[in-house]
Every structure is written in C-alpha cells, then in structure tokens.
C-alpha cells in the first residue's frame, strides 16, 4: 500500500547525510568537489561519500521501482491524497501497520545488505593492497 515510503524517508535522510559527509571529506582532502576519492582506497579504505552513494542509489532506485508497482496496482495515484487507501475510512490504520512491518523490514534489509557490501568491499580492497605489497617484496 505504502510500504516503500519508509525507504523513501530513509533515502531523504541518507542523501542529506551524504551531502554533509562529502563536505567534510572534501575539507579533509579525501574527495574532490565531484565526490570522487583522491586518496588511495587501499591505504585509507573506501571513502564514506562513495559508500553512502551506494546506499542512496539502492534506496532511491528501490523506492522508484516500487512506486511504479504501486501505481500499476492503483494503490498510489498522482493526485491528492496520493494514497488510494486515504480516501477509504479506516484503511489508513492498515496502511500504517503495513509501513511499520513490511516497510521497516524492507528498509532494514536494504541497509543490512549495504553494510555487508561495504565490509566486503573494504576487505577486498585491503586484501588486494596486501597481495600487491607481497608481490613487490618478492621482486
């Protein structure tokens, strides 16, 4: 019904946090004005501007595609009150319950997956740096 709105809310927060993190990392000389990392990821790890960019893409992308599905099923309309259930008395409780259960579960699953991806990505970058250092030492 409106489960994707929870992830939409998270996407707004993550976008704001990423903008603040980008500003901070830019001041520290970690990223350039476009948000591209200028330090060596193998030495300093992948910057948070990039990591939060991944989460932002996941959340906004997921929200957009789920919104299409809701429009397709007639649960969301492009005119006020936007949610079809809002015009049916007593249906808003069902909407809120679905947001609190399914919506929160969706946001949590996407965020946990992103966390796993960031840990794996950092581990891969550090391992490749160690392998290259070992190869150089052998030579």
């Amino acid at each position: 019904m409106a489960c994707f709105l929870v992830s939409g809310g998270e996407a707004i927060v993550v976008t704001a946090v990423r903008a603040a993190v980008k500003k901070s990392e830019q001041k520290k000389g970690i990223v350039d004005e476009k948000g591209k990392q200028i330090t060596d990821p193998a030495e300093h790890g992948i910057c948070w501007t990039r990591k939060l960019g991944w989460l932002m893409n996941m959340l906004w992308g997921g929200v957009l595609l789920l919104a299409i599905e809701h429009i397709w099923h007639g649960e969301v309309v492009l005119w006020p009150p936007f949610l079809t259930a809002a015009s049916v008395p007593g249906e808003m409780a069902t909407v809120l319950h679905e947001m609190a259960t399914v919506g929160v579960a969706m946001a949590v699953l996407v965020t946990v997956t992103w966390l796993v991806v960031t840990f794996v990505a950092d581990a891969v970058v550090k391992r490749s740096a160690k392998t290259e250092a070992a190869k150089e030492a052998e030579l």
Partner: peptide
C-alpha cells in the same frame, strides 16, 4: 552501470520482503 545494478538489487530485496509478508 553499477548504479543501475544497485537499483535493481534493492527493488529485488524489497519485493522479497513483500513476498515473505
């Protein structure tokens, strides 16, 4: 292309939750 892949993966995860529900 990574952004496109992330978009599809996130939607897949969200629909998995919907399916479990």
């Amino acid at each position: 292309i990574g952004s496109l892949a992330l978009m599809y993966w996130a939607a897949t995860l969200m629909w998995c939750v919907d399916g479990i529900a």
